[in-house]
Amino acid sequence: MEIDVDELDSAYRLLAGSVIPRPIAWVSTRGEAGENLAPYSFFNVVSVDPPVVMFAPVGIGEDLKDTPRNVLDSEEFVVNVVTMELAEAMNATSATVEGSEFEHAGLERAEGVRVDVPRVADAKVAFECELHDFVEIGRSTMVLGEVVYAHVAEDATTEDKVDVTKLDAVGRLSGSYYASTRDRFSMERPP
């Protein structure tokens, strides 16, 4: 199959079904309407110096949803890493609900250390972020956050480093499909 992207109504299914698995930013924010917790699978690391992560929700301007609107207002957010034991709760927070998604999904919150935003208390890794930049790209918005504080569960580390064999992170595939990082293999990089 050959695809002229200009002829598509949307490239979403092409991209979301091909760029897999995608890590999930489970973003918590606080705004005028209260707390918000929502998953975003257009997420990744952008820089290590300064440490910057990004997530890209659909919507710009007046069409912004609660999460990016809260980030614009407060200039801070937390990215919680989704692991297998939290996958069902993460999925529950993707629903449109009145009130707090923390309450809806039965999640305990822990207050931030450097930001005034709660994190998912049971998340193995959570990054407290301050807004670095907010960029409209087409019909989406790229939110860049500088990591100013990190929470890492002891049982996800070995010798004070995150141990990928202990962190069973969940990634988004497409539609209702997800993947865990249980099946791992190693390859040495060539010299």
Rank of each mutant, 00 (worst) to 15 (best):
F185Q: 13
T83P: 12
T93E: 04
P118V: 05
E7Q: 15
S176E: 07
V5F: 15
I137V: 15
D49P: 02
E111D: 12
F102L: 04
G31I: 14
I137G: 08
V79C: 01
N80D: 08
D160I: 01
V152A: 02
C129D: 03
D66C: 00
E76I: 03
Y178M: 00
L167E: 02
F185K: 03
E101S: 11
M187A: 14
R109T: 15
L15A: 12
N70I: 14
E159A: 07
R109P: 00
N44E: 02
E136K: 07
G138E: 06
V148E: 01
F55S: 01
G171A: 11
E188F: 02
L14G: 04
V27K: 05
A38G: 00
E101C: 06
E35V: 10
V78F: 09
E32K: 15
H151T: 02
Y177L: 05
N91D: 03
V113G: 04
G34P: 00
D163N: 12
G106P: 13
T181Y: 12
Y177A: 06
R109D: 00
F134E: 03
K124W: 02
F77M: 11
L14T: 13
P51V: 08
D183H: 14
A87Q: 08
P50W: 10
R189Q: 09
N44R: 03
S41C: 00
S176N: 06
A123L: 09
Y12L: 10
L144D: 03
E111I: 03
N91R: 09
D183P: 08
M1N: 09
A33F: 00
R184K: 14
F77D: 01
G138H: 10
E103R: 13
V170G: 03
V71M: 06
P57R: 02
N36H: 04
G59C: 07
S28R: 01
G106C: 11
G171Q: 15
L72G: 02
I60P: 12
W26D: 04
V27P: 13
L107Q: 07
M187N: 08
M84N: 11
D122K: 07
D168T: 12
D160K: 12
K161C: 06
A56L: 14
A89N: 04
I60R: 08
G171V: 13
T93V: 12
P51I: 09
M90H: 01
S41F: 10
L14R: 13
D63H: 11
G99P: 04
A38R: 05
T181A: 15
A123R: 08
L86P: 11
L86T: 09
A87D: 05
V46L: 09
P68D: 11
P191F: 07
A179V: 13
I137R: 06
E98G: 15
R119K: 10
G112T: 09
F185N: 08
K166N: 07
